Computed example of a mutant assay.
Amino acid sequence: MKVLFLTAALVLVSCSHKYPDPKSPLPENMEEAVTSNFRTPENEERDEYQHPKETLDFFGIKPNMTVVEISPGAGYFTEILAPYLAKQGQLYLAVPRMPPRPSPVLKENEKKLQDILLRNHEVQNHTKIIPFEPVDKRNKIPKNFADAVVSFNSVHNWVAKRSAHASFQFFFDVLKPGGTLGIVQHRIHDGKKRVPKSGYLYEKEVIFFATKAGFKLVGRSEINANPKDTADYPTGVWTLPPTYRLGEQDKDKYEDIGESDRMTLKFVKP
């Protein structure tokens, strides 16, 4: 498999967070991974809504697993998974290929991922970047090699691009039989009107894509539920924190609501 290795030759990005000593001991368990100094304060502040330990425990992530994180974005969960898996396991970051003219957000996210991996040599050795474009025939990802695939708030992107079926088929193919697919996604409840490209999906939509690919639903959790979220905002889910797309307009109101209501679903490849 052709992969891209991140090495010390990459340029470090500036960051107010104090890097851990490269010789610092790696976390022994999930609780230590969530509280370790590999994490930035800005990400730790989001734990109130992301519930990382509870979510990853629900998905059954263990330190000796091979895990594929899909579209890791700025690396909220990567900061936890990379050191957690660096002793016994392997983390693959399935990152969409950069467009010819990437946005500032995409560039910044790439730098943040590089920063995470450069904090520790063992993390570098046990974390690899692979391209993720489900409808791209250039993908050279082996089948049946991963113990778990996890995705956090990305399904709406594939629905918008009409690549959801191909994406879930990709997840099914890379997982070993018995492997787990863990999905967290912005949720709108049945009975409410879903605005296209709002970032919200019905649970039944995500379950449909997964089961159509061959997965079996084995668990649902309300770990990441937020009953304050009414899912009917002017700029969709991005009206809420941490994005605040409306700027200062009604910011106190949206801050009080908090981050989005989210479904948390666990599937297994038979």
Rank of each mutant, 00 (worst) to 15 (best):
S71G: 04
K251R: 15
R97T: 10
F145C: 11
G60I: 06
S221D: 08
V237S: 13
K228I: 11
G191L: 00
L91W: 12
V149Q: 03
N224M: 14
A210R: 01
L6N: 07
P241S: 03
H156L: 00
Y76M: 04
F170K: 07
K192M: 10
S16D: 15
F208V: 00
R97K: 15
D47R: 11
D57K: 15
A33G: 12
F5M: 03
V268P: 05
T35N: 14
P72A: 00
T35K: 12
Y92M: 11
L56W: 11
K137M: 13
P63R: 06
D57S: 13
K2S: 00
P242K: 04
G214H: 08
L113Q: 14
D47L: 02
F38L: 02
R101W: 04
T211F: 05
D21G: 04
V123N: 04
I70Y: 01
F5S: 11
G75E: 09
P41S: 03
T7L: 10
Q114E: 08
H186W: 12
P142D: 10
H121L: 15
L217S: 06
V184A: 02
F77Y: 15
L93D: 01
E28R: 11
P72F: 03
F171V: 13
A210Q: 02
P142R: 08
G73K: 07
F5G: 01
A160D: 12
N64Y: 13
F58A: 05
E108P: 01
G75R: 03
D136F: 06
P142K: 06
T127G: 09
K161G: 02
E248L: 13
K112A: 14
Y19I: 13
E248G: 07
W158M: 15
S154H: 06
P22Q: 06
K197R: 15
F58R: 08
E31P: 00
N153H: 12
P20W: 03
V237P: 05
Y244W: 04
L217E: 13
N29H: 04
G73W: 09
N153D: 12
D173P: 02
C15L: 11
P177M: 03
L91D: 09
S167A: 14
